[in-house]
């Protein structure tokens, strides 16, 4: 077990953004987190990462858990001069060999060192992925990494994520809209239902039978 959320809830004012969420990510597992807009997918991810305080339930993380995170949006200020390689060492210094191999893992090693503002949407998402995996994370949390990327590009990105999971033996929590991809490649699929229904807001869908079930995220 890398992280385990039990009956997790986050409230803003009187309104519950998410509630009664059970979710576990094990090493080497790919867990899909799906739900409609406004169902609280990003909130759920941030709560699991400890970026948001939870108001109910519990989140357990193993000690010294190394996390790679690709946030949903990263608005770079055009006044900040950042190149591809400088972004890789944003939060920690790394030897250049390690930068090269992280860039190679996402196919950006032959790009040179251009300003990040000149990258295409797909290249930028792959760069963010490289930035997350250079830390050699135990857990990779990806918040809609394929957004703004076309169908072919998102297929490439998914293959990449599978490769990374295999190479690093890390757990992956992948937030997505794509139910089909989730059903075919995920170990487990957690579906968030907007809380207005006031039921338990998470069901687990068995990726093989498609049947919804309740319970913890064990495979």
């Amino acid at each position: 077990m890398l992280v385990k959320a039990t009956d997790m809830g986050v409230r803003r004012g009187e309104r519950w953004i998410i509630r009664h969420v059970d979710l576990t990510v094990d090493r080497g597992q790919l867990i899909y987190l799906i739900g409609a807009n406004g169902a609280g997918k990003s909130t759920c991810a941030k709560a699991i990462l400890g970026l948001l305080a939870i108001d109910e339930g519990s989140v357990e993380r193993i000690p010294a858990l190394k996390v790679g995170y690709v946030p949903q949006r990263l608005a770079l200020s055009p006044t900040l001069p950042l190149t591809v390689r400088r972004l890789m060492t944003l939060t920690e210094r790394f030897p250049s060999s390690r930068i090269e191999s992280a860039l190679a893992a996402v196919g950006l090693h032959r790009l040179g060192d251009p300003p990040v503002t000149t990258l295409s949407g797909g290249e930028f998402q792959r760069l963010l992925l490289a930035r997350a995996l250079i830390h050699r994370p135990d857990l990779l949390v990806l918040d809609e990494p394929a957004q703004g990327v076309d169908m072919a590009g998102s297929g490439v990105l998914l293959d990449l994520i599978q490769d990374i999971r295999r190479d690093l033996q890390c757990g992956v929590l992948l937030i997505s809209h794509d139910l089909h991809a989730a059903m075919s490649s995920g170990d487990d699929v957690v579906v968030l239902v907007p809380h207005e229904h006031d039921e338990r807001s998470v069901g687990l869908v068995d990726p093989y039978t498609g049947a919804a079930r309740q319970g913890s995220g064990q495979n």
Partner: peptide
């Protein structure tokens, strides 16, 4: 410098990296 620059790009990324 490093935490401030990381926070300028994204506070969430900085926190996740332990800064």
């Amino acid at each position: 410098w490093r935490p401030l620059l990381a926070a300028t790009v994204s506070p969430d990324l900085a926190v996740v990296a332990g800064l």
